[in-house]
Design a protein around this nucleic acid. Structure first.
Lengths: 223, 223
DNA sequence: GCAAAAGTGTTTTCAATACACCCATGG
DNA sequence: CCATGGGTGTATTGAAAACACTTTTGC
């Protein structure tokens, strides 16, 4: 067995792209790297897999313990195995997406200072280390597909969102403009969202009504 | 570095579910295991990842060299990392799907005899070794989603298929019955398939017309 | 001529699209 | 009262769904 392990010996790491929506903009959480290699660049949070944990356990620990974030919805996306992803070792990386709504997030943040984290709009990714630009691209495309083909937006919008905000997300994902009246008709008339009766005051212009997703609705492609 | 490798030292393997469609039935290719553990059980083909290859290179070699099959369309699906997947070692497995049309397949098969392979309908999977039943399930679900959300059926039906055959595939994937007239209307009237002018003779009943997919059509959810 | 399987047309319903004006708030 | 952004209704088009009979072949 030990002879086998010499020829077949890779390191395995997890990486996570944590996404949220802030004022209708999809954002990803990146970490500022403080050590070489790629010191000063931005990278996806993650860690090496040890022998006594699953990939999912590992990435959950990264989110909760290392980043100090609340537990959140996580999905595995893709495993990257290019030979020179990491300049020092052969490291295979399994990448995840994590989703957290903006409200839950604000409540629990800022418990730790030794790690510098920042949110970036997915169209304005800063200079990244390793092959993380490629991985971020894949994660963003994966997220977009999932938003279109499933109802995971419920996770990013647990309650009390406005239709203009939701529409902006769909416009980013679909890369088109959507007619406001038709968007509203679709979501409200087909029963995907429910009027909470509250409105979103304190912004410019007429206050927007607040909605929540209808939980009883089956998963279906909306667009 | 070597101290790190002691704590973080996993084996990584690839596995592949190769799918085809035969007379409207979706089938998966499994391998009869000739050695312990799980001797006599059926498993997904695969191999351990060595240090100088990517997962994709590795699984392509399995398909072409080990199984003696033609190169085919391959997609990565999921990475399984449960601690006791393999009774002997900690092995993390990245699973792929491969798609091959029945015609190409028949032409190139049977070049090797030392490996026993067989096709199984996805609703009649035999007794499997390791956690491969769970992995097969995931691969089948992944394939179904991809069939619904993309146009990969073009790969399984490169040309000259009948609409009743294609309909059977959709019925398996969607787990519903589809009206023959509406199915035909949708695919033909909306330009997804094109009448080749040939027919499928030699079977019972009226011969079915042969179609091919319209290559110029954009990816879209049909159902 | 009978069994097996495939092809065909019409009507109704509902969602998709296109499009312009009015309303509520903050400053 | 004006700027900003949000809400609303109608008409048209096109696809989805429901539904029954006829055609071609093998035996």
């Amino acid at each position: 067995m030990s002879s086998i392990k010499k020829d077949y010996n890779q390191l395995l790491e997890t990486l996570i792209g944590i996404f949220t929506v802030d004022k209708g903009k999809i954002k990803i959480l990146l970490m500022h790297k403080k050590t070489e290699p790629y010191k000063g660049y931005w990278v996806l949070p993650g860690s090496l897999l040890s022998n006594n944990e699953t990939l999912e356990d590992n990435i959950t620990d990264v989110v909760c313990d290392t980043l100090g974030l609340p537990t959140m919805y996580i999905e595995q996306c893709y495993t990257f195995s290019n030979l020179n992803r990491d300049p020092d070792n052969r490291v295979v990386a399994t990448a995840f997406i994590g989703l957290i709504d903006n409200i839950t997030l604000v409540l629990k943040k800022q418990e730790r200072d030794e790690i510098e984290l920042a949110w970036f709009e997915i169209n304005s990714i800063p200079k990244t280390g390793y092959d993380h630009d490629k991985i971020i691209n894949k994660l963003v495309e994966y997220l977009k597909k999932r938003i279109i083909n499933s109802n995971i937006l419920k996770i990013l919008f647990p309650s009390d969102f406005t239709l203009p905000e939701l529409q902006k997300v769909y416009e980013q994902v679909l890369n088109t403009e959507i007619d406001r009246r038709n968007f509203r008709k679709k979501l409200v008339n087909l029963g995907y969202v429910i009027d909470t009766g509250d409105v979103n005051e304190g912004y410019m212009g007429r206050p927007a009504k607040l909605y929540r997703f209808n939980d009883e609705l089956e998963e279906r492609n909306l667009f």
